[in-house]
Nucleic acid binder design. Structure first.
Lengths: 124, 124
DNA sequence: GTCAGTGTACGATACCTGTCGAATATGCAA
DNA sequence: TTGCATATTCGACAGGTATCGTACACTGAC
């Protein structure tokens, strides 16, 4: 107990009340991040670890997206052993931006014929 | 060269019903474009020409933003003489993405990140 | 201790887009 | 026709960011 405080355990979470609309829209304007949110909405809270999502990006990129979503007040993360479990901050975010998250969760995943990746994704 | 139809009367407008969420979020994730929308919301329809907006960008950049908004189904434009008048497609866009435009129009312009220092000293 | 699993940090790269100045096209009125 | 005002288009540039592979940190179990 005495000794160094392990601030590694306290993840920096942004309160949805402090999120500017700019940040919220930027966070939601990425299809991978919206996929994370929709996946999370279909599961009980804090049951999904970051690595269990089926995402079309590498592990490093996925980690980046989780950080962006956390910074935008869209999800809460807690560490459980080696895993990092996620919870969608639905009520809080909805109180800040009513209806916005609902539009994302109701989005029809309609994969167009021409994927609009920003960068390459040759082998998948 | 044969004169190609440039500013034809048939401006390419995207029906809000055909706008993917991706495009809507990308269009709204720019502060200049949101400023255009908020300005437009405070005026009667088809009374604002593109050049009458007080925007912090050049004329060329403004023209680009108007085109993006039109392609995202957010505004309708008609030519009146040398001017191009604008109308916010509020009802149509709201039918497609309920609540989304309302969040933008209700945005209180928060200029810049609030410094934590109290050097303005509003209360001491 | 070592090992395996999970997630982040780092460095590099490619693409997108917001930005500009200058040129061009259009409409209207002298 | 000329001139002026309005708006788009063109070519170029810079910054941001999504992406990757690799290396590192941490936890729990052996």
């Amino acid at each position: 107990m005495a000794g160094q405080a392990r601030r590694a355990r306290t993840l920096r979470h942004t309160d949805p009340k402090d999120v500017p609309l700019q940040d919220a829209l930027e966070a939601l304007a990425d299809p991978v991040r919206r996929l994370i949110l929709r996946t999370l909405a279909g599961e009980p809270e804090f049951t999904r670890a970051c690595g269990t999502f089926d995402l079309p990006v590498s592990k490093a990129t996925a980690s980046h997206h989780f950080a962006v979503l956390r910074a935008a007040g869209l999800l809460e993360q807690v560490d459980q052993g080696p895993r990092r479990l996620n919870r969608l901050r639905r009520a809080e975010f909805d109180a800040r931006f009513p209806g916005l998250l609902g539009l994302v969760l109701a989005e029809d995943e309609q994969p167009g014929p021409a994927p609009r990746d920003a960068h390459t994704a040759p082998s998948r």
